[in-house]
Design a protein around this nucleic acid. Sequence first.
DNA 1: ATAAAACGGACATATCATATCCGAATATAA
DNA 2: TTATATTCGGATATGATATGTCCGTTTTAT
Lengths: 161, 161
Amino acid sequence: MKLSEGTEWAIHCCSLLANLPPDFALPKSRLAEFFDLPEDYLAKFLQELSRAGLVKTSRGPGGGYQLAKPAGQINVLEIVQAVEGDQHFFQCTEIRRCGPSGVADKHYKKPCGIARTMHRAEAAWRAELAAVSLNEISQMGAEESPQEQIEKSLSWFESVM
Amino acid sequence: MKLSEGTEWAIHCCSLLANLPPDFALPKSRLAEFFDLPEDYLAKFLQELSRAGLVKTSRGPGGGYQLAKPAGQINVLEIVQAVEGDQHFFQCTEIRRCGPSGVADKHYKKPCGIARTMHRAEAAWRAELAAVSLNEISQMGAEESPQEQIEKSLSWFESVM
DNA sequence: ATAAAACGGACATATCATATCCGAATATAA
DNA sequence: TTATATTCGGATATGATATGTCCGTTTTAT
């Protein structure tokens, strides 16, 4: 059980977008270049961020992706769910109802203890992610980047804008 | 991102084993019958429970699977990890090091903020699962089963022992 | 008009989940 | 000793999902 790579890409991209000047849009070609990712595949995830309302897009020359909201108003869970969908990790197939001891569906009033336990754990996972804003992510990124990387980022950015 | 069905099966099987009299072993054929599952495939997961030391096995006539420890000393996380492996959901591919702003590996001292955030969330998930013992699972199962199911279980059990 | 860009669908490939089968090892009982 | 019941591990098949590429359409700035 593994999250898709797209999740990592999407968070990094959002964090990069959070550092751009307002009203500046970055096209997928630049985002892919910055992280050395396959452009067309990355586009899939960017489109999902767009559908989820986390980024806004503009077409045509000078267009691209920007955050749709201030980075403080986006949390990591939203990004993860935009990419992964909102399926539960654990999908109960109700095997308690099968086999020689199973009885008619109507007798099972609520989810079984196993499903409740698994879902509570998922809720804890989600809560941790929801508690971290994109702002914090981008700030951590800035703090922990080697000085040389920050300089290279800035000069890359000047070359593209 | 989805847990395998084997996880659900394994927890249910362990819960069933928790209700057996001591020194009674249930073969995979009976376990598969009880939940109406494909026997050979179920066996894969039972073997993983065995490798993880959660169940013990005995071969030959009268053999089968039993819990290796009292149900109070097994928690749900152990069962899940036996089946799913202990891979992280989030596997950081360090894309921060790639592209035009990346610098030499030696400059990155610790995991990035994104990886730390994702791992903290996973830790919360694990903690919830580790906090629930197989004993509690099996007790919930007993409490929430329709009366008719309990009776059918007992009579099935008498027919196999 | 031209070029730059997102968008969406079609397609190809790779990896993993699901499933089945079989032979070998092991243990019990007749 | 033989027959039978069982776990164990490897080989193989199939299906679903993740990964990746390509192309035609739409939108928009210049």
